[in-house]
Computed example of a mutant assay.
Amino acid sequence: MKRILLAMALLSAVPVFAQKKPKDNTPKSFDLLIGTYTTGESKGIYVYRFYTETGATAYLNEVDGIDNPSYLCVAANNHFVYSVNEVGTERKGSVSSFSFDPKEGRIALLNKQPSTGTGPCYISIDKAQKHVFVANYASGALSVLPIAKDGTLLPVVQTIQDAGTGPNKARQEGPHVHTAVLSPDEKYLLYTDLGTDKLNIYRYKPSQPQPLTPADPSVVKVLGGHGPRHIDFTPDRKFMYLITEMGGVIYVYDYNKGEPKQLEAISIVADGFKGAVGAADIHVSPDGKFLYATNRGDANEIVVFAINPDTGSLTFVERKPSMGKTPRNFVIDPTGNFLLVANQMSDDIYVYKRDKATGKLTLTRNKISVGNPSCLKFTPAE
Rank of each mutant, 00 (worst) to 15 (best):
S124K: 00
I125D: 02
K127V: 05
K127I: 05
K127C: 06
A128I: 14
Q129H: 12
Q129E: 14
H131F: 05
F133Y: 14
F133T: 05
Y137N: 03
G140D: 11
G140C: 13
A141G: 01
L142P: 02
L142I: 05
L142E: 06
S143L: 00
S143K: 02
S143F: 02
L145V: 04
L145E: 03
A148Q: 09
A148E: 12
K149M: 08
D150T: 07
G151P: 09
G151L: 08
L154F: 05
P155F: 02
P155L: 02
V156Q: 15
Q158T: 10
I160P: 01
I160D: 03
Q161N: 14
Q161Y: 14
D162R: 15
A163K: 15
A163G: 12
G164H: 15
G164Y: 12
T165I: 15
G166E: 07
G166P: 13
G166T: 08
N168M: 13
K169Y: 08
K169R: 15
R171D: 13
R171W: 07
G174L: 08
H176L: 12
H176G: 08
H176N: 03
H176V: 06
V177E: 01
H178C: 06
T179I: 05
A180N: 00
V181L: 12
L182G: 04
L182C: 06
S183A: 09
E186M: 07
E186C: 09
Y188V: 08
L189F: 12
L189E: 05
T192N: 11
D193C: 07
G195W: 04
T196I: 12
T196M: 07
D197I: 10
K198D: 04
K198F: 05
L199N: 03
L199R: 06
L199P: 06
N200V: 10
I201S: 04
Y202W: 04
K205W: 00
K205M: 00
K205V: 05
P206F: 11
S207N: 13
S207K: 14
P209G: 04
L212A: 10
T213R: 13
P214Q: 05
D216N: 15
D216G: 05
P217I: 10
S218M: 08
S218W: 10
V219M: 06
V219E: 11
K221C: 06
V222R: 01
L223N: 13
L223W: 03
R229E: 00
H230G: 04
D232L: 01
F233Y: 13
T234S: 13
T234C: 12
D236P: 13
R237D: 14
K238V: 04
K238F: 06
F239H: 09
F239V: 05
F239D: 05
F239Q: 02
M240S: 08
Y241K: 03
Y241F: 09
T244A: 13
T244S: 14
T244K: 07
T244Y: 02
T244G: 09
M246Y: 12
G247C: 11
G248C: 07
V249K: 04
V249F: 02
I250Q: 03
I250Y: 00
Y251I: 07
D254K: 15
D254F: 14
D254A: 14
Y255M: 07
Y255P: 06
Y255T: 06
N256Q: 11
K257T: 07
G258Q: 10
G258P: 10
G258V: 07
E259Y: 06
E259F: 03
Q262W: 10
L263K: 07
L263S: 00
I266W: 01
S267K: 13
D271L: 12
